[in-house]
Design a protein around this nucleic acid. Sequence first.
RNA 1: GCCGGGAUGGCGGAAUUGGUAGACGCCUGGGACUUAAAAUCCCAUGUCCUUUAUGGGCGUGUCGGUUCGAGUCCGACUCCCGGCACCA
Length: 817
Amino acid sequence: MIKNKRQMEKHWQDYWDKIKLFEPDLKNSEHKYYCLMMFPYPSAALHIGHMRNYTLGDTLARYKIMQGFNLFTPMGWDAFGLPAENAAIKDGIHPAESTAKNIATMKKQLREWGVGYAWSKEINSSSPEYYKWTQWLFLQLYKKGLAYRKKAKVNFCPSCQTVLANEQVIEGKCERCSTAVVQKELEQWFLKITAYAERLLEDLNTLTKWPEKVKTMQKNWIGRSEGAEVKFKLQATSYRLQDRESIKVFTTRPDTLFGCTYLALSTEHQIIEKLKSKVENSKEIEKYIEETKKQSISTRDILGKEKSGVEIKGVKAINPVNNQKIPIWVVDYVLMEYGTGAIMAVPAHDQRDFEFAKKYNLPIKKVINPLPATLYPLPASQAYEGEGTLINSEKYNGLSSQEAKEKITADLQKKGLAEKKVLYRLRDWLISRQRYWGTPIPIIYCPKCGTLPLPEKDLPVVLPRDVQFKPGGESPLKRKSNFIQTTCPKCGSLARREADTMDTFIDSSWYYLRYLSPQDKKDAFNSSLVNRWLPVDQYIGGVEHAIMHLLYARFINKFLYDCKLVNFNEPFTSLFTQGMVIKDGLKMSKSKGNVVYPDTLIEKYGADAVRLYILFIAPPDKDVEWNSKGVTGMWRFLKKVEQLAAGGRLQAASQKTKNLKPEVALRRNIHQTIKKVTEDMERFHFNTAISSIMELVNYLSRYPFPVSRYPLEVIILLLAPFAPHFCEEIWQNVLKNKGSVFKHPWPRYESRFIQPEKALIIVQVNGKLRAKIEVERDTSEKELKELVLKEEQLKKWLTKPIKKIVVVPNQIVNIVI
RNA sequence: GCCGGGAUGGCGGAAUUGGUAGACGCCUGGGACUUAAAAUCCCAUGUCCUUUAUGGGCGUGUCGGUUCGAGUCCGACUCCCGGCACCA
C-alpha cells in the first residue's frame, strides 16, 4: 500500500490548490455548472453526518469537472444563530470568537477530506461586509411595503427574563431553569411572503428537477384552499344586543352547514372582549384564556395535545342556513393565525370537531351520505370527512357535495351572509429576534417622525462587539445605550435604533447571489454576473430544509426578480435532498450527544476509504444508521486496485494472447461498467456506482490473461471523483500520466460493445422459476415457445394441460397450466 | 394532531419500466499460506424440509386485493424517521 497515506493526501491537496482545480473563471460562463451546497452553521467540529454531505457534493463537482463543465462550487458560513449566543451566555466566549474558531476547524477538516471549493469566493453571513447587504435587502422589502410591524407572541421565561425559541421550551418549561414558560406579546417585524403565495405555489410546476416530495411539502405548507367566508349573526338569550354583532368563519365545506352544531373560537378572537359585558360566565372564560397562555406558542404543542374549551354562556350564534341557534365555544384547537380565528364545527364530518363534541356532549348531526351509501355504513367512532349526497339539509337534500357548495354559497351570498374566498395556510414571515448574534434591523424610531428606514448610505448598522450576554430582561442590544441612541436621519433629533436582529433565514435567503462577487463594496450582488451564472444548476442540502429555507429563498428571489435585479424567476434549477446520518435511532447532532467523528477512521484508513464507505453504505438521499465497521472493505478494495495497477500484469495484452473470447467479454464488461457508473452518477446512485466498479475490479483480478492499460485507466477515471487522492496518485505516479486525472475527460462507452449475443431466458410455470435456457438474442416468440416445450427439465412440471404461454422476448416465458 | 418519507438476510444495502429477490460490501464459519500472528487468497453464508438433488416448501413490516407474474401497483393497518413557522 502507498506509504505515508496522510503525506500523500496532503501532497495532492496542495497540488489541487496549485493548479486551481476548483477556482472558476467567472468571466467565462459558457458550459457553466453552478454546484451549490447549503452553507453550514459553524458548529464545533464536523461529524460523519457532515462528511456525508460534503463528500457527496465534492464527488459530483469532480465528476462535472471531468465532464468538461466550467464548474463553480463555492462555500461559506451561515454564521449567525442561537448556539453561539447560548455558548456566550454559558461560557462567556464571544460568538465572534467561537464562530471564527469553528470555521477554522471546519476548513481544516474539509481540506483533509479532499473536499474542494472556490475558496477565493468564501462568504460569512456574520461579517459586516455581508450583513450590510442583508440590511440593504430588508430596506428594499420595506420600500416596497413588504416589511411591516405588528404584535406577535413570543415564549418568555419569567425566571431567566428572556425570550425563548420553541426549541428551548421543553414540555412548556424553560430548558435552562425548568420554569413554566409564558406567552408575551411584542411589536415585531414581518415580511409579507403571503403576497407571493400564489406564485410560490404556481411556480412549483416549473421545478421539474425537484423531488416530488419536496414540492408536495411546499404545496401543503402554502395550503391553498377554496371555500367561503360565512357570517353567523349573534343573539343574546336574556336581552337584545344593541349592535348586530356577528362572527365570520371560513369553511371549505359549505355543503355541511346544516350539520354545524356549534362555533369554535380561538382564545384570541376579538369578539370575546367585545361580548365580555354581555356574557354570563366571563370570569370562567377569562380564566380559561389565562390558562392557555401558559403554554408554548408552538403549533405542534398546541395541536398535539387533547383539545379543550369552554362555552360562552348567554350568547348564541345563528346558523344562516336554517336560523338555528347554536352555542359558541372558546377552544384551544383553533388558531388565530389561520382564517378568521373562528370555525363552524361540524362534528359529523370533521374528526377534530367530532372528538370535541363527544367530550363535551354536543350534538352530532349527519348531513352527508357517503356514496354509494350502502357500501360505507358510518362507523360510530369517527366522522365521515369525504364528500357525498346531502341529507337533513332541507331543500338541498339530494344534491352532491359539489353542487351544494356552489348553491348554498350563492344563496347566502344573495343575503349578504357569505362570500367566496381563497385562503392560504401560509403566514407572513416573522423575522424579529430578541437576540444579539444576528443582523441588526436597519430601522430608527424617532419620537417626532416615527418609524424610519436607515438611509442606504449609512449601512451597515454595525453589531457592537462589547455587550453583556447574561440575560437581564431585555436582549443584549437593548441594554447597549451607545448602540440604541442615535439621531433621526430626517429631523436630527434624538432617536433610538431597533434593538431586534433578523431571523437567520434571511441571511440564507440570498447568499447564493453573493458568491459571485463576495468583495463587492457597491452592490449586494453583481446582476450581470449573476444573470449569467444563475440559476444554480444543482443545489444540495438536507431534507430538513425542504420547506422553510427553500420557500424563503424562492420568495426573496422572486422579490428581486420583480425589482429587475435578477432575470430568473426561480433560484435553483435542480435540487437534491440528502438523507441524514442516524446514530442510535436519532439524527446525529452534538446536542443529542451521539456524534461520531471521522478523524480516527481517516487516520487509520485514509480519507479516500472513508469517503468511499460513506457513499457506499446507502443511496445519498436515504437516511442511514451509522456503523464504522465496513470501512475495512473499502480499504481492501483500494489495495486491490493498487496491486492491479502496480502489478506485473500490466502488459500489452492484445499481442500476448490469441484467445479473443475473454477479450470480447472484458471489453463488454468495461463498457457496461462505464455505462452503469455514468448513469448512476447522473441519478446520484453513488452506492451502486461504486459496487459496479468493484465488480469490474473483481473481474479483472481474476482475469487469466495480462491486462492492458485501458481497463486500469478506466477504473481510475471512474473512481477518481470518489477517491480523489488515491486516483491522482495512481494516475500520475503509477500509470505515469501527465497532468491531473481530473483534467482527463470522463470515459465514454460504446453501445455496440455492450450487447451480449446470447439471451438468458427465465422459464416459469405458473409464475415460479423452473428452468433457465440460453438462446440467441431476439429469438422470435414462436421459436421460444417451441424451444421451451422441448426442454427436458420442464417435463415433470407440465402435468396438467397448458392454458396459456406468456412470452417476453429476451427475458421470460411463463407457462400457465 | 397535521404534512412528507421509510420498512428487503446476522448488518448496510441491490433489483432504473410489474418479469431470476438478496448484486456489492461488512460480520460469521471453514480451509490454504505462516514457527506463530497479522495481512492475503479460496470456499460457505435468507430460512425450513427431505430421499443430499441439476431437489422442494416458505420468504421483501402486517392483513387483504389486482395480475400469467407483485419488493415494485391498489386498499386498510403497525412501527420508525423528518418538518410543523424562534435549532439551522
